[in-house]
Computed example of a mutant assay.
Amino acid sequence: MLFTPATNSIAPDNALERFFAICVILLAMCVFSSFIGTISATVNSLRNAQGQKLKQEENLLRFFIERNLSLDLYSKVQEVVRRERLTEARLSEEEVELLQRLPQRFKMQMHEEMYLFALLHLGIWPPWSSPDTDPVFNTLCHHAMKDHLAKPGEDVFMPGTACHHVCIIESGHMSYSLAGAPPEEATPGSVVALPCLWAEWSHCGRLMARTGSCYYVTLNGDDFCEVVMRFGGPLLRFLQIMGVLLIGELESAQDQSQLSDLTSLSNIREVSERAQRFTKLIGTTPDKSVHATFSILANKAQGGLFGRLQTRNLSPFG
């Protein structure tokens, strides 16, 4: 038998050796066939992927040619597509099938660990509220929050579009642009569109991902109102007053033509501190004039003093 390129005199002499030689040959054939099959499958897979890529590029070019669109726009679209292919995205919860079958209690714990930091970063919570004792936080993390990815060049929202959730930027660098103003950098930790928790808000500018994969967490305004009102208590009253004061700040900003989706954390904390003082004042004094003052503010807020802002169901003293 020949196991080397050159001839030799080595050969089985008895039945046992012949049986062993046959087994070696069969095993070698199986291993070699499997190896060749794996290589062929890999090559075919790469060929199919490349074919799909070329087909997509061909369809894109055909689309622009048939509609007589500009070459400049085509170049910009190509650049966005190229950068998107270079971007690696982390797995989303929906992509992990095993997570869908987890018991509800484990999902709630998972969402709390995923989103609690972003929720607390909003800066709207009074110091006496705690995630350890108040179920509002855990419920908001589970029912009202979700993470998202914005790839380079992708728009998160455009001016004039309806806003339904607050954005808390986790990582990456985004650019926020207002008409007639230079772009602002929205860095990790920035809070965007906070007023939509209390009002029907329309975006004032455009938020776009600049470099790398930009991850951000959203808190849905309708779900926020539903959860907070369901649990009620002192936290509800505080957030109602917080909403009245925040809407007042927005009215002042609109009068000065300074409305923006970006909210300074220092301004949020300042409004929160004022809300804490007013909450304490309302809770400790029977003076009807204090309650009447806030009722007037609440009614004004409910009326929507400026056209772009109308209050949600989380209205004070309702």
Score class of each variant (00 low, 15 high):
residue 270 E to S: 15
residue 275 A to L: 00
residue 275 A to D: 00
residue 195 P to T: 05
residue 170 E to A: 10
residue 193 A to I: 05
residue 202 S to L: 13
residue 232 G to Y: 00
residue 197 L to N: 01
residue 245 L to T: 03
residue 204 C to H: 13
residue 287 D to Y: 09
residue 255 D to I: 13
residue 170 E to N: 10
residue 262 L to E: 03
residue 185 E to H: 10
residue 242 M to D: 06
residue 262 L to P: 03
residue 252 S to E: 15
residue 285 T to H: 09
residue 215 Y to L: 14
residue 260 S to N: 05
residue 218 T to V: 04
residue 289 S to Q: 13
residue 282 I to R: 15
residue 285 T to I: 09
residue 277 R to H: 10
residue 187 T to L: 11
residue 249 E to R: 15
residue 192 V to E: 00
residue 281 L to N: 06
residue 249 E to C: 11
residue 193 A to R: 09
residue 178 L to D: 04
residue 281 L to P: 03
residue 191 V to K: 04
residue 283 G to W: 11
residue 179 A to E: 14
residue 214 C to F: 07
residue 208 M to R: 15
residue 207 L to Y: 03
residue 272 S to V: 05
residue 277 R to M: 11
residue 257 S to W: 03
residue 283 G to K: 13
residue 224 F to E: 05
residue 255 D to Y: 11
residue 284 T to E: 14
residue 242 M to K: 10
residue 199 A to K: 12
residue 186 A to E: 02
residue 230 R to A: 15
residue 263 T to W: 08
residue 266 S to F: 03
residue 231 F to M: 05
residue 282 I to D: 09
residue 224 F to I: 05
residue 280 K to C: 11
residue 263 T to Q: 14
residue 238 F to I: 04
residue 176 Y to P: 05
residue 177 S to P: 04
residue 259 L to S: 01
residue 226 E to L: 15
residue 227 V to D: 01
residue 237 R to T: 08
residue 189 G to T: 01
residue 261 D to M: 06
residue 280 K to G: 09
residue 226 E to N: 15
residue 212 G to L: 01
residue 240 Q to W: 03
residue 265 L to A: 13
residue 216 Y to M: 05
residue 271 V to T: 07
residue 230 R to Q: 12
residue 234 P to V: 13
residue 273 E to S: 14
residue 246 L to H: 09
residue 278 F to R: 12
residue 254 Q to S: 10
residue 228 V to N: 06
residue 180 G to F: 00
residue 176 Y to H: 06
residue 239 L to K: 05
residue 266 S to N: 06
residue 250 L to Y: 03
residue 205 G to W: 01
residue 174 M to I: 00
residue 249 E to P: 05
residue 194 L to K: 04
residue 254 Q to G: 03
residue 209 A to Y: 01
residue 261 D to N: 05
residue 200 E to I: 13
residue 271 V to H: 05
residue 198 W to M: 07
residue 179 A to D: 11
residue 263 T to H: 08
residue 226 E to V: 13
residue 263 T to F: 07
residue 282 I to V: 12
residue 168 I to G: 10
residue 240 Q to C: 06
residue 275 A to R: 01
residue 192 V to H: 00
residue 213 S to R: 15
residue 205 G to C: 04
residue 224 F to D: 03
residue 174 M to H: 01
residue 273 E to G: 12
residue 180 G to W: 02
residue 281 L to C: 08
residue 268 I to P: 02
residue 173 H to R: 14
residue 191 V to F: 02
residue 209 A to F: 02
residue 218 T to P: 02
residue 200 E to F: 13
residue 280 K to Q: 12
residue 223 D to K: 15
residue 229 M to K: 14
